[in-house]
Amino acid sequence: MTGDPGVLLTSAQQTSTTALLARAAAGRGMDVTVSTAPEAIDAVAGRAVHWYGGPRAAAQAADRAGFALLEPADDWLVRLPGEYTRRRIELTTLSEAWEITRPVFVKPPSDKSLPAAVYADGSRLPRGGDGIGPGTAVLVSEVVTFAAEYRLFVLDGEVAAASRYAVYGRLDTAPLGDGTRDADALRFARRLLGAVAGTLPSAVTVDVGLVQDPDTGAEHWAVVEANMPWFSHSYCAEPGRVLDTVLRAAGPRDLVSSHDLGFVRTAAATV
């Protein structure tokens, strides 16, 4: 429909970010619909539908509503030069991670299919459960301490919105201000994004943090991870700019650019 501002479709599990984005979308004249049932999704099919919510609910709605989901490649973090990660990271399977005999940090590349945490050894990792199995992809990293962590909503290679979200591993949110650490985080982000141009979707979240060297105490900026804006908390980032990123990252399939086609989440990945 010409002139239709579109629809923000959200999962039934509502969060503080869902509420902020819904308010921002409504302020632009968009309709906001909760995907509580197939009938709710069918009611908006044929319009410009965008998504915010979890991947499992997205898998049930994407084809019916006609939207595509962008996500970074599973091995993006592994392929970064060491100057941007400051730790050893490998992409492997859950079954291989079970054999690890040292403390490690383990997380899925994008989904929240198992808890991202430090595990004393591989035997502490889940052996099965809803949505995971021996072949589940996991990122395994040496254990490091992040003095501060920041979430960046990136649109077309530029930071559109940002927020601090943790200090020494504990949730501690704050909007970016004039502090030296905030400015350094953005400076590192600009250098990183220039170095990795073309390797990420046009809309993505990138978390960066200040790593402390356990031996020298020196601090270095490093990438924590990259994720999907349509499943990322906004924390204290400006909701309107977060929404801009979300709309690009999860929107009508026929509007996906040639660059972003390589980052469209497949049906197999959403199950």
Results as ranks from 00 to 15, higher is better:
K112Q: 13
T101V: 13
G209P: 08
A222F: 06
S234L: 14
R248P: 00
A203G: 06
G27E: 11
L200W: 09
D130Q: 08
R187M: 10
D178Q: 12
E96V: 08
G129W: 00
H50D: 10
L114D: 14
E71Q: 15
E96W: 10
I132F: 11
V154I: 09
H259K: 08
R181W: 02
S123P: 05
D4H: 08
G54A: 09
P229H: 03
F231Q: 11
G129H: 03
G240L: 00
A189V: 10
F67S: 03
G6M: 01
D74S: 14
Q60K: 13
M228T: 15
Q60T: 10
R265L: 15
T17P: 01
G122M: 09
G198K: 00
A117G: 03
V106I: 10
P72V: 04
L69K: 03
A12Q: 06
A174L: 05
Q60H: 10
G240R: 02
Y235C: 06
D74E: 12
P201S: 04
L20N: 11
S113G: 07
V271G: 15
P72R: 04
L91G: 11
V271C: 09
D31C: 00
D172A: 15
T136W: 04
W221S: 08
A183L: 14
F263I: 03
E149I: 10
A197N: 07
T2F: 09
A19C: 01
D130N: 10
E142A: 02
P214F: 06
L114P: 10
V44Q: 05
T10M: 14
Y119A: 14
G3M: 09
G217T: 08
T136M: 10
A160V: 02
H259Q: 14
T180S: 13
G129I: 02
T266E: 13
S123W: 12
A250G: 11
L69M: 15
C236L: 00
D31M: 09
D63H: 15
A222H: 09
A249N: 01
D213P: 06
T18S: 13
R151G: 05
A37M: 12
H50V: 07
G209T: 05
A148G: 14
L186D: 06
G194A: 07
L94G: 08
F67K: 08
